[in-house]
Simulated scan of single mutants.
Amino acid sequence: MIIPVRRFAATCALSALGVALAACGAPGTPQAARPGQPASASAAPSRPPTLAPGPAGLTPVFTNGPRTPDKTVALTFDADMTADEGPRAADGEHFDNPRLIATLRAFKVPATVFMTGRWADEYPEEAKDIGQDPLFEIANHSYSHYAFTDNCYGLPTVPEDRMRADVEQAYTAFKKAGVRNAMPYFRFPGGCYDQKALRTLSSVGVTAVQWDVVSGDAFATDADAVARQVLQGVKPGSVVVMHCTRSAAPTTEEALRTIVPELRKQGYRFVKVSELIGTAAHPDH
């Protein structure tokens, strides 16, 4: 999900919709099924937490966790690669960022990686390595990284009758790479969605995950500016969107070296998205 800072304002209205729908995950409501599982299996304690469907059964949207005194924050990283970018990778462009993953490990920071299926196809060993590390969780960012709405930052558009297949194809790519426990969370490419997309994906059993803090790391050249933007935006329960692609977000790893120690100094605890969703769905637990 590559969004330059100057364009992020266009997604604010969408985030507002996400906040409204996220409220539907109230205590006592049934959880949606994990992709590939029957609805009755979702109540099992071993299943990752998800939000209940929104109005009229729409895919629920999660933007941030509760604003409680427990100062938690989830760092999320989009591992982007669009379906038609294979020739660029063949010419030497790097859509991965092993150094960033190594830094998260060195700092012992849990994180959620929203991965495209095309990225997993290109970097299967890295996908498997991330997926097998309990410090991380892998979630779905579509297979193609094509948009699920029109007019989404110039991305090609997935036809409505291909939306579900695109999400499921990503899960298939993860399994092929050796990722066995991909999470039932989905991030729309570009962060762009509408009622049609939410309705179309309702049968997949995913919770759509947005964010409330944009890092501004996409195409950024100033790591200090990225760090400042994150530190100024984080609140308890925040979801920060960053990127795990060297070519499109070259300063992210450097920015982390400022962000992580400073947030810990402020009393924040880093968590995966699954923990925030679990707290939002069951705030009394």
Results as ranks from 00 to 15, higher is better:
1 M>G: 13
4 P>W: 04
6 R>I: 14
11 T>N: 12
12 C>K: 12
20 A>H: 09
21 L>K: 00
26 A>F: 10
27 P>K: 07
28 G>A: 09
28 G>D: 08
34 R>V: 05
35 P>G: 07
35 P>M: 07
36 G>Q: 10
38 P>C: 09
40 S>V: 12
43 A>R: 14
45 P>V: 06
53 P>A: 15
54 G>C: 04
55 P>K: 01
57 G>Q: 08
57 G>P: 02
57 G>A: 09
58 L>D: 03
58 L>H: 01
59 T>A: 01
61 V>R: 05
64 N>S: 13
64 N>R: 13
66 P>M: 08
68 T>F: 02
69 P>M: 07
73 V>M: 06
73 V>K: 01
74 A>F: 04
75 L>R: 01
78 D>L: 01
81 M>I: 12
83 A>R: 11
84 D>T: 13
86 G>E: 13
86 G>F: 10
88 R>Q: 14
91 D>T: 06
95 F>H: 10
95 F>T: 01
95 F>R: 05
96 D>S: 13
103 T>D: 14
104 L>M: 09
105 R>F: 03
106 A>E: 15
106 A>F: 06
108 K>F: 03
111 A>E: 06
114 F>W: 05
116 T>I: 05
118 R>D: 10
119 W>V: 01
120 A>F: 02
126 E>F: 07
128 K>T: 04
129 D>W: 06
135 L>F: 10
137 E>F: 04
138 I>A: 06
138 I>L: 15
138 I>V: 15
146 Y>L: 05
150 D>E: 15
152 C>K: 00
153 Y>S: 06
153 Y>F: 15
157 T>W: 01
158 V>K: 00
159 P>I: 05
159 P>Y: 09
163 M>S: 01
163 M>E: 13
164 R>Q: 15
166 D>N: 13
168 E>N: 11
172 T>I: 06
174 F>N: 03
175 K>D: 12
177 A>V: 02
181 N>L: 07
186 F>S: 00
190 G>M: 07
192 C>T: 10
197 A>Y: 01
197 A>N: 03
199 R>C: 02
201 L>M: 12
202 S>L: 03
203 S>R: 10
203 S>M: 03
209 V>W: 02
212 D>Y: 06
212 D>R: 04
212 D>S: 09
214 V>D: 12
214 V>N: 10
215 S>Y: 01
217 D>C: 09
225 A>F: 04
226 V>P: 00
227 A>T: 07
228 R>T: 14
228 R>P: 02
229 Q>Y: 04
229 Q>R: 15
232 Q>M: 09
233 G>H: 05
233 G>E: 09
234 V>W: 00
235 K>M: 07
236 P>Q: 03
242 M>S: 13
243 H>Q: 14
244 C>D: 14
247 S>M: 11
248 A>V: 11
250 P>R: 07
251 T>V: 15
253 E>L: 00
260 V>K: 01
262 E>Q: 15
267 G>S: 08
268 Y>A: 03
268 Y>D: 04
268 Y>R: 05
269 R>E: 10
270 F>A: 04
275 E>L: 09
279 T>S: 11
280 A>R: 12
281 A>L: 03
281 A>N: 08
283 P>V: 11
